[in-house]
């Protein structure tokens, strides 16, 4: 067992030394691999960041009830009491048409807006916080509220967030597809690197077989080469995405500021990083194994 571990340790060390000794050749395949990995990683982080943000938006969905323009104080009192006793309503606030107009003026710096207008075009409104966040319940509540007397419309604020959710879902599917496609690319790239190496070391392999090297002995350095390459490529890809996020975040924050939102791309969590590195190593080793099995059989000892 100790002997076996020693053999592995020796191949691992030699393989890493070999990569480091040929910086140009290794860099080329490393660049290819890491860019192939950085693409789905960046997309993944973007999609996940948007999902986090949308999630925050829809955490407290609210339904806005707009009263008809002709609604009287009595009508408002009636709706108010209906909301108070409704089992599916957790709470509500009333925003009078007057208050809405001052808010609008303040928020957008449109002082004197009313002067150009014939009275107040805004309706009275209730902002309702539902008791249940379950989508079906929300829809039912929305329907019930819109049926109250003198209610013009019950608008579900998060309906556009729902649409965003749909887009996030699409992004997720895209990420999975891209990740799969580039996983195949990763296997193929390592397959090719290892194939070239096997061809370059044909003589050594042949002689080693002649003097008693087992298949696993011959395969081992190539597998370790691929392992290191996958690991290094994963780390470089991580660095690339971290750099991309660092560059993109200020611009995104500025853009989101225009809409009074705080949006930020997040980096990989340690668990995600470990997962990415694990997959990279696994796929690279798989590519090397396929190449080795295919080409070592051709270099026969006879």
């Amino acid at each position: 067992m100790k002997h076996y571990l020693f053999l592995h340790w020796q191949s691992a060390r030699t393989a890493l030394a070999k990569i480091l000794r040929q910086p140009v050749g290794s860099l080329l395949s490393l660049a290819m691999l890491s860019i192939a990995m950085a693409l789905p990683l960046s997309l993944y982080l973007t999609v996940m960041s948007i999902q986090d943000w949308v999630g925050k938006l829809t955490q407290t969905p609210q339904i806005t009830l707009f009263m008809e323009q002709s609604a009287e104080t009595a009508d408002i009192a009636a709706v108010s009491s209906a909301l108070k006793t409704h089992p599916r309503v957790k709470g509500y606030t009333f925003i009078s048409k007057k208050q809405a107009l001052t808010d609008l003026e303040k928020r957008n710096g449109l002082n004197g807006l009313t002067e150009g207008l014939d009275g107040n075009p805004l309706p009275d409104a209730f902002v309702v916080t539902p008791a249940s966040l379950e989508p079906k319940q929300l829809e039912l509540l929305q329907k019930e509220l819109s049926g109250l007397p003198m209610v013009e419309e019950a608008q579900f604020d998060a309906s556009w967030a729902k649409r965003l959710y749909g887009m996030v879902d699409l992004g997720k599917h895209l990420t999975v597809f891209l990740a799969l496609a580039l996983s195949v690319a990763l296997v193929l790239i390592t397959h090719n690197t290892i194939r070239m190496q096997i061809l370059a070391r044909r003589d050594e392999i042949e002689v080693s077989k002649l003097i008693g090297a087992t298949d696993s002995f011959i395969r081992r350095p190539f597998l370790y080469h691929a392992l290191w390459q996958g690991l290094l490529a994963g780390l470089v890809a991580w660095g690339l995405t971290a750099w991309l996020i660092a560059v993109a975040n200020p611009a995104i924050a500025e853009f989101a500021q225009l809409y009074n939102e705080r949006v930020e791309l997040r980096g990989l969590s340690p668990l995600e990083l470990a997962l990415v590195l694990g997959c990279a190593v696994l796929l690279a080793t798989l590519g090397a194994r396929l190449a080795a099995d295919h080409h070592l059989r051709r270099v026969s000892a006879n």
């Binding site: 077989k209 002649l210 003097i211 008693g212 090297a213 087992t214 298949d215 002995f217």
Partner: peptide, 13 residues
């Protein structure tokens, strides 16, 4: 076939 390498290891050629 997989055992032949070990035989070769004990022969000098």
């Amino acid at each position: 076939g997989s055992q032949l390498p070990f035989v070769r290891q004990h022969i000098g050629v």
